[in-house]
Amino acid sequence: MTAHPTGTREEWLAARLALLVEEKALTRRSDELARKRQALPWVKIDKDYRFDTEQGVATLADLFGGRSQLLVYHFMFGPDYRAGCPSCSNIADGFEGFVAHLAQHDVSLLAVSRAPLARLLEYRQRMGWTFPWASSHGTAFNYDFNVSFTEAQQRSGELEYNFRQEGRAVGQSPAPAAVVETAACCGTDVPTFSRDRPGMSSFVRDGDAIYHCYSTYARGLDVLWGLFQWLDRAPLGRNELGNWWRRHDEYDD
Protein backbone atom coordinates (compact mmCIF):
# COMPACT_ATOMS: atom_id res chain seq x y z
CA MET A 1 0.00 0.00 0.00
CA THR A 2 1.31 3.47 -0.86
CA ALA A 3 2.22 5.89 1.94
CA HIS A 4 -0.81 7.89 3.02
CA PRO A 5 -1.19 10.77 5.49
CA THR A 6 -2.45 9.84 8.95
CA GLY A 7 -3.78 12.08 11.67
CA THR A 8 -5.91 12.45 14.75
CA ARG A 9 -9.66 12.01 14.85
CA GLU A 10 -9.99 15.80 15.17
CA GLU A 11 -7.87 16.37 12.05
CA TRP A 12 -9.90 13.76 10.15
CA LEU A 13 -13.18 15.42 11.19
CA ALA A 14 -12.00 18.88 10.11
CA ALA A 15 -10.96 17.53 6.71
CA ARG A 16 -14.18 15.55 6.41
CA LEU A 17 -16.34 18.59 7.13
CA ALA A 18 -14.46 20.57 4.48
CA LEU A 19 -15.04 17.75 2.00
CA LEU A 20 -18.72 17.63 2.96
CA VAL A 21 -19.13 21.21 1.76
CA GLU A 22 -17.82 20.17 -1.65
CA GLU A 23 -19.95 17.01 -1.70
CA LYS A 24 -23.07 19.04 -0.98
CA ALA A 25 -22.17 21.46 -3.78
CA LEU A 26 -21.75 18.51 -6.15
CA THR A 27 -25.12 17.08 -5.06
CA ARG A 28 -26.84 20.41 -5.75
CA ARG A 29 -25.08 20.61 -9.12
CA SER A 30 -26.18 17.05 -9.89
CA ASP A 31 -29.79 17.98 -9.04
CA GLU A 32 -29.52 20.97 -11.36
CA LEU A 33 -28.19 18.80 -14.19
CA ALA A 34 -31.04 16.34 -13.65
CA ARG A 35 -33.53 19.17 -14.11
CA LYS A 36 -31.76 20.28 -17.30
CA ARG A 37 -31.68 16.68 -18.52
CA GLN A 38 -35.44 16.42 -18.04
CA ALA A 39 -35.95 19.79 -19.77
CA LEU A 40 -34.36 18.64 -23.04
CA PRO A 41 -36.74 18.89 -26.02
CA TRP A 42 -38.39 15.61 -26.95
CA VAL A 43 -37.92 14.23 -30.47
CA LYS A 44 -40.84 12.30 -31.94
CA ILE A 45 -40.09 8.76 -33.11
CA ASP A 46 -41.43 8.29 -36.62
CA LYS A 47 -39.95 4.86 -37.42
CA ASP A 48 -41.83 1.64 -36.81
CA TYR A 49 -39.18 -0.31 -34.90
CA ARG A 50 -39.76 -4.02 -34.30
CA PHE A 51 -38.06 -6.18 -31.68
CA ASP A 52 -37.96 -9.87 -30.84
CA THR A 53 -39.05 -10.43 -27.24
CA GLU A 54 -40.12 -13.34 -25.06
CA GLN A 55 -43.72 -12.32 -25.81
CA GLY A 56 -43.13 -12.32 -29.57
CA VAL A 57 -42.53 -9.50 -32.04
CA ALA A 58 -42.99 -6.17 -30.31
CA THR A 59 -43.12 -2.52 -31.29
CA LEU A 60 -41.31 0.22 -29.40
CA ALA A 61 -44.67 1.07 -27.83
CA ASP A 62 -44.99 -2.52 -26.61
CA LEU A 63 -41.67 -2.25 -24.77
CA PHE A 64 -43.23 0.35 -22.46
CA GLY A 65 -45.30 -2.45 -20.91
CA GLY A 66 -48.27 -0.15 -20.39
CA ARG A 67 -46.17 2.52 -18.65
CA SER A 68 -45.47 6.05 -19.86
CA GLN A 69 -41.66 5.99 -19.54
CA LEU A 70 -39.05 3.62 -20.97
CA LEU A 71 -35.35 3.31 -20.13
CA VAL A 72 -33.28 1.25 -22.56
CA TYR A 73 -29.80 0.00 -21.75
CA HIS A 74 -27.92 -0.54 -25.02
CA PHE A 75 -26.12 -3.74 -24.03
CA MET A 76 -23.06 -4.65 -26.14
CA PHE A 77 -23.98 -8.05 -27.55
CA GLY A 78 -23.56 -8.11 -31.32
CA PRO A 79 -24.86 -10.89 -33.58
CA ASP A 80 -21.39 -12.45 -33.80
CA TYR A 81 -20.59 -12.30 -30.08
CA ARG A 82 -20.56 -15.61 -28.22
CA ALA A 83 -21.15 -13.88 -24.86
CA GLY A 84 -22.16 -10.42 -23.68
CA CYS A 85 -19.67 -7.65 -22.96
CA PRO A 86 -18.29 -8.09 -19.41
CA SER A 87 -18.51 -4.35 -18.69
CA CYS A 88 -22.16 -4.24 -19.73
CA SER A 89 -22.68 -7.41 -17.70
CA ASN A 90 -21.26 -5.65 -14.64
CA ILE A 91 -23.65 -2.73 -15.14
CA ALA A 92 -26.53 -5.18 -15.62
CA ASP A 93 -25.67 -6.87 -12.31
CA GLY A 94 -26.43 -3.50 -10.75
CA PHE A 95 -29.69 -2.63 -12.48
CA GLU A 96 -31.16 -6.15 -12.31
CA GLY A 97 -32.74 -5.31 -8.97
CA PHE A 98 -34.07 -1.91 -10.02
CA VAL A 99 -36.55 -3.16 -12.63
CA ALA A 100 -39.31 -4.05 -10.17
CA HIS A 101 -38.95 -0.77 -8.28
CA LEU A 102 -38.99 1.37 -11.43
CA ALA A 103 -42.08 -0.47 -12.65
CA GLN A 104 -43.90 0.83 -9.56
CA HIS A 105 -42.96 4.36 -10.57
CA ASP A 106 -44.34 4.21 -14.13
CA VAL A 107 -40.95 3.39 -15.66
CA SER A 108 -40.00 0.28 -17.66
CA LEU A 109 -36.34 -0.69 -17.81
CA LEU A 110 -34.96 -3.25 -20.24
CA ALA A 111 -31.89 -4.08 -22.30
CA VAL A 112 -31.73 -4.09 -26.09
CA SER A 113 -28.99 -5.79 -28.13
CA ARG A 114 -28.42 -6.87 -31.73
CA ALA A 115 -27.76 -10.55 -30.99
CA PRO A 116 -30.60 -12.99 -31.73
CA LEU A 117 -33.08 -13.33 -28.88
CA ALA A 118 -32.27 -16.98 -28.14
CA ARG A 119 -28.62 -16.12 -27.51
CA LEU A 120 -29.56 -13.20 -25.27
CA LEU A 121 -31.90 -15.32 -23.18
CA GLU A 122 -29.34 -18.11 -22.90
CA TYR A 123 -26.77 -15.63 -21.60
CA ARG A 124 -29.32 -14.05 -19.26
CA GLN A 125 -30.01 -17.46 -17.75
CA ARG A 126 -26.28 -18.05 -17.28
CA MET A 127 -25.99 -14.71 -15.45
CA GLY A 128 -29.06 -15.34 -13.30
CA TRP A 129 -30.84 -12.17 -14.43
CA THR A 130 -34.57 -11.67 -14.95
CA PHE A 131 -34.83 -8.19 -16.53
CA PRO A 132 -36.56 -7.96 -19.93
CA TRP A 133 -34.17 -8.20 -22.88
CA ALA A 134 -35.20 -7.47 -26.47
CA SER A 135 -33.35 -8.20 -29.70
CA SER A 136 -33.09 -5.49 -32.35
CA HIS A 137 -31.43 -7.95 -34.73
CA GLY A 138 -31.89 -6.91 -38.36
CA THR A 139 -33.37 -3.49 -37.52
CA ALA A 140 -32.06 0.08 -37.60
CA PHE A 141 -32.69 0.76 -33.91
CA ASN A 142 -29.10 0.44 -32.66
CA TYR A 143 -27.73 2.34 -35.63
CA ASP A 144 -30.21 5.18 -35.23
CA PHE A 145 -29.21 5.62 -31.60
CA ASN A 146 -25.48 5.51 -32.40
CA VAL A 147 -24.58 2.34 -30.53
CA SER A 148 -23.92 0.14 -33.57
CA PHE A 149 -21.96 0.74 -36.76
CA THR A 150 -21.50 -0.90 -40.14
CA GLU A 151 -18.26 -2.32 -41.47
CA ALA A 152 -18.21 0.50 -44.02
CA GLN A 153 -18.39 3.10 -41.24
CA GLN A 154 -15.56 1.34 -39.45
CA ARG A 155 -13.35 1.27 -42.52
CA SER A 156 -13.88 4.97 -43.23
CA GLY A 157 -13.81 6.11 -39.62
CA GLU A 158 -17.00 8.07 -40.31
CA LEU A 159 -19.00 7.08 -37.29
CA GLU A 160 -20.49 9.09 -34.46
CA TYR A 161 -20.32 7.93 -30.88
CA ASN A 162 -20.83 9.96 -27.72
CA PHE A 163 -21.91 12.95 -29.80
CA ARG A 164 -18.68 13.29 -31.75
CA GLN A 165 -17.14 11.89 -34.89
CA GLU A 166 -14.60 9.17 -34.19
CA GLY A 167 -12.49 10.25 -37.15
CA ARG A 168 -10.26 7.17 -37.13
CA ALA A 169 -10.84 3.94 -38.97
CA VAL A 170 -10.54 0.67 -37.07
CA GLY A 171 -7.18 -0.92 -37.80
CA GLN A 172 -5.26 2.32 -38.33
CA SER A 173 -3.42 1.71 -35.05
CA PRO A 174 -3.18 -1.27 -32.70
CA ALA A 175 -6.12 -1.67 -30.35
CA PRO A 176 -5.43 -1.27 -26.62
CA ALA A 177 -4.68 -4.55 -24.88
CA ALA A 178 -7.84 -4.24 -22.77
CA VAL A 179 -9.99 -4.02 -25.92
CA VAL A 180 -8.26 -7.04 -27.47
CA GLU A 181 -8.80 -9.01 -24.26
CA THR A 182 -12.45 -7.99 -23.96
CA ALA A 183 -13.17 -8.84 -27.61
CA ALA A 184 -11.61 -12.27 -27.11
CA CYS A 185 -13.70 -12.98 -24.01
CA CYS A 186 -16.79 -12.18 -26.09
CA GLY A 187 -15.61 -14.75 -28.63
CA THR A 188 -14.83 -12.30 -31.39
CA ASP A 189 -12.16 -10.00 -32.84
CA VAL A 190 -11.63 -6.29 -32.22
CA PRO A 191 -13.37 -4.95 -35.38
CA THR A 192 -16.43 -7.15 -34.82
CA PHE A 193 -16.53 -6.35 -31.11
CA SER A 194 -16.19 -2.61 -31.80
CA ARG A 195 -19.22 -2.45 -34.08
CA ASP A 196 -21.33 -2.24 -30.93
CA ARG A 197 -20.98 0.27 -28.10
CA PRO A 198 -22.67 0.80 -24.73
CA GLY A 199 -25.25 3.47 -23.95
CA MET A 200 -28.66 4.19 -22.51
CA SER A 201 -31.66 6.03 -23.92
CA SER A 202 -34.94 7.19 -22.46
CA PHE A 203 -38.33 7.51 -24.13
CA VAL A 204 -41.76 8.78 -23.16
CA ARG A 205 -45.29 8.03 -24.40
CA ASP A 206 -47.77 10.86 -24.79
CA GLY A 207 -50.99 9.36 -26.06
CA ASP A 208 -50.09 7.40 -29.18
CA ALA A 209 -46.89 9.41 -29.76
CA ILE A 210 -43.46 8.23 -28.59
CA TYR A 211 -40.58 10.63 -28.05
CA HIS A 212 -36.85 10.17 -27.56
CA CYS A 213 -35.83 12.20 -24.51
CA TYR A 214 -32.22 11.47 -23.58
CA SER A 215 -29.19 9.32 -24.40
CA THR A 216 -25.77 8.94 -22.83
CA TYR A 217 -22.68 6.93 -23.69
CA ALA A 218 -19.15 6.05 -22.58
CA ARG A 219 -18.23 7.81 -19.29
CA GLY A 220 -21.78 9.12 -19.17
CA LEU A 221 -22.69 5.62 -17.99
CA ASP A 222 -20.39 5.85 -14.97
CA VAL A 223 -23.16 6.95 -12.63
CA LEU A 224 -25.23 3.93 -13.70
CA TRP A 225 -22.31 1.57 -13.02
CA GLY A 226 -22.89 0.84 -9.36
CA LEU A 227 -19.56 -0.92 -8.84
CA PHE A 228 -17.58 2.26 -9.40
CA GLN A 229 -19.81 4.38 -7.18
CA TRP A 230 -18.84 2.04 -4.33
CA LEU A 231 -15.16 1.95 -5.32
CA ASP A 232 -15.02 5.76 -5.41
CA ARG A 233 -15.82 5.63 -1.69
CA ALA A 234 -13.36 2.86 -0.85
CA PRO A 235 -10.01 3.88 0.73
CA LEU A 236 -7.97 3.22 -2.43
CA GLY A 237 -10.63 4.30 -4.94
CA ARG A 238 -10.68 2.66 -8.35
CA ASN A 239 -6.99 1.75 -8.05
CA GLU A 240 -7.00 -0.07 -11.36
CA LEU A 241 -4.74 -0.93 -14.25
CA GLY A 242 -6.77 -2.07 -17.23
CA ASN A 243 -10.05 -3.95 -17.08
CA TRP A 244 -9.70 -5.99 -13.89
CA TRP A 245 -13.36 -6.96 -13.60
CA ARG A 246 -14.91 -10.13 -15.00
CA ARG A 247 -18.39 -11.56 -15.40
CA HIS A 248 -19.55 -12.49 -11.91
CA ASP A 249 -19.29 -16.23 -12.61
CA GLU A 250 -15.68 -15.98 -13.83
CA TYR A 251 -13.83 -14.95 -10.67
CA ASP A 252 -11.50 -17.61 -9.28
CA ASP A 253 -13.03 -17.45 -5.81
Rank of each mutant, 00 (worst) to 15 (best):
L227W: 11
R28D: 14
G237L: 14
E151L: 09
V147H: 09
D80V: 14
V43P: 03
Q172S: 11
R82T: 02
R35E: 14
A175V: 08
D93G: 03
D52E: 05
A234W: 15
A25N: 03
D52T: 07
F51C: 13
T192D: 07
R35F: 09
Y123K: 04
L19W: 15
G187T: 10
S136T: 07
G138N: 03
R67W: 03
A209V: 04
A234Y: 14
F98K: 00
L26P: 11
V72L: 00
R119I: 13
E10Y: 04
A234N: 12
A169C: 02
A118G: 14
R205T: 05
A183S: 05
D249R: 03
L60Y: 14
T8F: 07
A61P: 15
L110H: 11
D196Q: 12
I45W: 13
L120I: 14
V43T: 10
D189T: 05
S215L: 06
G94L: 09
R28F: 15
F141D: 10
A15H: 07
V72K: 04
D80S: 14
Q104M: 02
F77E: 11
Y211C: 08
F75I: 00
L241P: 15
L17I: 13
E11V: 11
D206W: 12
L19N: 12
M1I: 04
V180W: 01
Q229I: 12
Y217L: 05
M127T: 04
T27C: 02
R164Q: 09
D252M: 10
A175H: 06
F98P: 02
H137R: 00
E96D: 12
E240K: 02
L117E: 02
V180D: 01
Y143E: 00
D253M: 09
H137A: 05
G237H: 13
H101V: 04
T192Q: 03
A58E: 00
H212W: 01
D62Q: 09
I91Y: 14
T27D: 05
Q38A: 12
M1D: 08
L117I: 11
W129A: 05
L60F: 12
Y81R: 14
F75L: 08
P132S: 09
D253Y: 09
S201K: 10
G237F: 13
K44S: 10
E151T: 07
L120D: 11
Q154Y: 08
V72D: 10
L109G: 11
D249K: 07
E240L: 07
T139D: 08
P86K: 15
L60G: 11
I91R: 15
Y123G: 03
C185W: 02
D253Q: 09
A92N: 15
G56K: 13
S68E: 13
R233A: 02
N142L: 02
A118E: 15
Q69Y: 10
E158M: 01
E166K: 08
W12I: 10
D52I: 01
T150G: 08
T188W: 03
P176W: 01
T59M: 12
G226A: 10
I45Y: 12
G220P: 10
G66A: 05
R37E: 04
Q154T: 06
R205G: 02
E32S: 07
P176M: 00
H137P: 12
A83R: 13
S89F: 10
D31K: 06
A103I: 13
G84N: 08
A140T: 04
N243Q: 00
Q55M: 06
Y81Q: 02
